[in-house]
């Protein structure tokens, strides 16, 4: 095995090893963590961020960033509550398309374009909701429910999106184009890859995934509120980065992102079980993100 593939193995499984260690420490301090119901809860809690982060993985692999996913999730959930779930998905994808158009054809930096969308989508959510939470219909509520006593649908949806993401990244042209564009946009262009159209697709996918995450969140809560999913974009980015993706593009995998989202969920759950005050939880989570990134950076050296 060459040094690079060992390194790759380590960085891939480094996050996984971190997850295992984290879970063991928490289980040692609070055995209730290992309770099956609690573990399922962790999975459900991870689902929303994970689905969002899968969409973010496409964007990050292609060398971009999407700050608008939290707002898009809220808007899609609200539209879903006011009309029907599928309409919410369409709205999310459309928001993503607008992001992609601004970036591809307007040549705006992704940071700026999606920052603008963050504000616009949140604003529209406030406008349409008139500041009030709205109840979701049974279709959306079903997304957040249990299929059977020990079979929460959010968990299954997370796994389904995980599978789709892995397939898209590794087995489709679109996925290979993402890696090429993120690795070297100029070389991709000179190899005949339609960079602009590909980016359109990438951001549309991110919007679609964010909308799906928003609907799952609304389904769990039974309502879509104007302040839903505030700041979730940062968790999604954190999950992608903890999973070993590079914000400079060209590197990242679906398994990494899944592990990243689980790390965040396990941490939140564990801190609750250990009765750490919520204000301190923020501090700990921030420290863990920094630590994960630091370890990854040390490994790459």
């Amino acid at each position: 095995m060459s040094t690079i593939s060992i390194r790759k193995y380590a960085s891939e499984n480094g996050a996984l090893a971190g997850l295992v260690v984290l879970a063991l420490v928490i289980a040692f301090m609070q055995p209730a963590f290992l309770n099956a119901q609690n573990l399922l809860n962790v999975g459900v809690q991870a689902a929303v961020i994970a689905i969002m982060a899968f969409g973010m993985t496409f964007v990050v692999v292609a060398g971009g960033i999407d700050l608008s996913v939290g707002s898009i999730a809220a808007l899609a959930a609200l539209v879903g509550a006011l009309t029907a779930g599928p309409v919410g998905l369409v709205v999310g994808a459309l928001c993503g398309l607008v992001n992609g158009a601004l970036i591809s054809y307007g040549k705006l930096p992704p940071f700026i374009a999606t920052l603008a969308m963050l504000s616009v989508a949140r604003g529209l959510t406030l406008v349409f909701s008139e500041g009030q939470p709205h109840e979701t219909d049974e279709v959306v509520t079903f997304l957040g429910s249990n299929l059977a006593p020990m079979l929460p649908l959010p968990l299954l949806l997370m796994l389904a999106f995980f599978g789709i993401t892995g397939l898209v990244l590794t087995r489709t042209n679109l996925g290979r184009r993402m890696y090429a564009i993120g690795g070297n946009e100029e070389a991709a262009k000179l190899s005949g890859i339609d960079v602009r159209r590909t980016k359109l697709w990438i951001y549309a996918l991110s919007g679609l995934f964010a909308a799906a995450a928003g609907l799952v969140l609304a389904g769990r809560l039974g309502s879509a509120g104007p302040q839903a999913a505030v700041g979730y974009e940062l968790d999604a980015i954190a999950a992608v980065v903890i999973g070993g993706a590079s914000l400079s593009g060209g590197v990242g995998r679906a398994t990494g992102t899944l592990v990243g989202a689980l790390v965040l969920a396990v941490l939140r759950n564990g801190l609750n079980l250990l009765q750490v005050p919520p204000f301190w939880q923020q501090v700990v989570i921030g420290a863990v993100i920094a630590l994960a990134a630091l370890l990854d950076s040390l490994r790459r050296r």
Partner: peptide, 21 residues
């Protein structure tokens, strides 16, 4: 390096850049 190769990718992935379809 700037225009020809995707340095983050493998030899094979670079070889099939043009013929992805």
């Amino acid at each position: 390096k700037r225009q020809g190769l995707v340095l983050t990718a493998t030899v094979g992935q670079n070889l099939e850049l043009v013929t992805l379809a």
